[in-house]
Design a protein around this nucleic acid. Structure first.
Lengths: 241, 241
DNA sequence: CGGCGCGTTGAGGCTTCTCAATAGGTGTGG
DNA sequence: CCACACCTATTGAGAAGCCTCAACGCGCCG
């Protein structure tokens, strides 16, 4: 199931069939990681590039006092450490949040992929989007209310998961605990819980356990001041003249 | 004075003399921007790559309600939008904080530079560092106390400005108002002011207007939990076996 | 001299955090 | 099958801290 990878890259840049086949061949089946395992640990050096085929993970940093900050989500199709072999040690860790299928590509694989112009461009784009997401998260933490922060993350997940076929038009399964949401948006578990309650109270979301339904997507986006253009998906670009 | 550019890139990756000469020739003198002007505005498309030769700036995003979040500092040697011509619109703006000398490189210039392996690698590195800084800022906002946030920013500026010869071993000129510091770390002006007072009170910094002196750099770094490895400078790498 | 940007200070309100306890769900071992 | 440990979600109460509002001083500039 490397279709999510192709889907994700094609959301950024169109790919010839040949490139899709190459991608499919190179990625293969992948290795299975258990939930909670590190894909790459903080401070590790890695020669290989990890790609999420199936499952969810996150990037994180740990502080001396044990606090943790989540600095990115990994969803199917994400290249975790495209640049990893350039660095001698990773400045952050990556962990599997659910059971994951992970492809491990060598530098030769990457060179093979990046020798194709369309693929190289798509991968380059995906790195630009990663940086854009970091910038948007910074805005989220710095300048939005707790409820809006949580709402913004939910909006982003909705869109990102839709691209890889893991969300419907109005909902998805949230693969995160409230503690992990808090480590993402800079709040405590208690505050995240109350923020979610407020969102439920104002009917912006409906929750059944980890299943999130968004009755009025436009309303939630408005509340969160969510503007998907930072994700730089092609459809956003083509919507405009 | 494109020495800062060379200094900055060489801090990441060694460059042959030939490449330095090329860089020098391509960058030239640059255009002068007045303090407060936008280098590139939010939503703009730009075909050219802007490089800071002299002066200080920042990246920012503005929210609908007028709040602003600063999402990066631009110091001499920084390539503002290396990837800009790929995007059809910038997802954030860049502004000059002081009077600036800005070089404007065309796509041909960039292709000329990136055809040199060492230069290409250095530029690639600089983008990796930009992303690493964003991740560290996320940790800063999410999980550190107000004083530690401000202290961390000061530590980062000390190190980054040292690389381009704009800081001494224990101090530099802070080209930011307290309001701008607040827009960086997610605090109000009042809170930034009080955070700085606490830092002064505990003798971690000495201020004479915008001139910052750090009597005990190690102490400030300890207080801020500042680990410069995320900046990926060569000296850090070579310090270790 | 007046306006303006910036740093500083004070007081009060509000929100988040901390601490603590409870309940539901899951998985394990007896 | 039950007891138990553990994780997660939820709730309450109090303390602490940040934000809002407001005022003032200072230096700079026209």
């Amino acid at each position: 199931m490397s279709t999510s990878i192709i889907g994700k890259l094609e959301a950024l840049h169109p790919l010839p069939d040949k490139d899709k086949k190459l991608l499919h061949a190179v990625v293969g089946r992948g290795r299975t990681l258990k939930s909670g395992e590190d894909i790459v640990s903080e401070g590790d050096h890695t020669d290989i590039v990890h790609v999420i085929i199936e499952g969810h993970g996150y990037r994180y940093k740990t502080l001396a006092d044990g606090k943790r900050q989540i600095i990115g989500y990994l969803v199917p199709g994400d290249f975790c450490d495209l640049y990893g072999f350039l660095l001698d040690k990773m400045d952050h860790g990556m962990a599997a949040r659910t059971q994951c299928q992970i492809a491990e590509l060598t530098e030769e694989h990457i060179l093979m992929l990046t020798s194709r112009p369309a693929l190289a461009r798509a991968l380059w784009w995906s790195e630009l989007v990663n940086a854009a997401i970091l910038r948007e998260w910074l805005v989220n933490m710095g300048r939005r209310s707790p409820s809006a922060r949580v709402a913004h993350i939910l909006c982003e997940l909705l869109v990102r998961l839709q691209v890889v076929g893991q969300a419907t038009a109005d909902g998805f399964k949230l693969e995160l605990s409230q503690a992990e949401l808090g480590d993402t948006v800079g709040l405590t578990t208690v505050s995240v819980n109350r923020a979610l309650q407020r969102l439920r109270g104002s009917k912006l979301i409906v929750q059944a356990g980890r299943e999130i339904t968004i009755p009025d997507v436009a309303a939630l986006k408005r509340f969160a001041a969510f503007d998907p253009s930072y994700l730089h998906f092609r459809q956003d670009r083509e919507d405009r003249p």
